[in-house]
Amino acid sequence: MFNDLDPLIHSQLRLAIMSILVGVEQAEFVYLKEKTNATAGNLSVQLEKLQQANYISIEKTFKGKYPLTICKITNQGAEAFSKYVKDLQVYLRSN
């Protein structure tokens, strides 16, 4: 039996963001932008969606005079990502 894949994580950019964040303690906005090849605007929108779902936390500070946005995966986000991966593996093993 197939479980529904989490539509919030299933989006290509949000999946990329979650995949990066699950493997690091935290990531700066610029790092995520470079790794995902996303535009700043699109990345901001997708980060906001993940934050609203409590999958990630976002901290906005300054590094010297420059704004600094730091993203971290939450426990809830890590659990949702783990479930997503397990559910996807069921799809991949069905053949």
Rank of each mutant, 00 (worst) to 15 (best):
I17E: 03
M18T: 00
Q52A: 01
V85C: 10
L5K: 05
S57T: 14
L15F: 14
Y55E: 10
S82K: 15
E28A: 04
I73M: 04
P7F: 11
L32A: 05
S11P: 04
G23I: 02
K33W: 06
I73E: 03
N95K: 05
Q51K: 14
L8V: 12
P67H: 07
Y55H: 10
Y55W: 08
T36E: 08
L13E: 07
R93Q: 15
N75E: 15
N37Y: 14
K72P: 06
T61Y: 01
Y66A: 07
L88Q: 12
K63P: 03
Q26D: 13
V45N: 12
T74D: 03
D6M: 05
H10R: 11
L13M: 02
L92F: 11
I58N: 00
L43W: 12
F62T: 05
A40S: 15
S57N: 06
M1N: 13
E28W: 01
E59V: 02
I9Q: 07
V24N: 05
G77R: 08
T39A: 01
I56K: 04
K65Q: 07
N54A: 04
Q89S: 08
G41R: 14
S94C: 00
Y84E: 11
T39E: 12
H10P: 00
K72Y: 09
S19L: 11
A78H: 13
F81K: 03
G64Y: 01
A16F: 08
E48H: 13
Q46N: 15
F29P: 03
K63Q: 10
E48L: 02
V22R: 05
P67G: 04
T36L: 06
K49H: 08
Q46A: 08
I56E: 08
L32N: 10
Y84P: 09
T69H: 07
K83M: 14
I73G: 00
S57Q: 04
Q89I: 09
H10M: 09
I58F: 02
K49E: 09
M18K: 09
P7H: 14
F81H: 04
A80H: 10
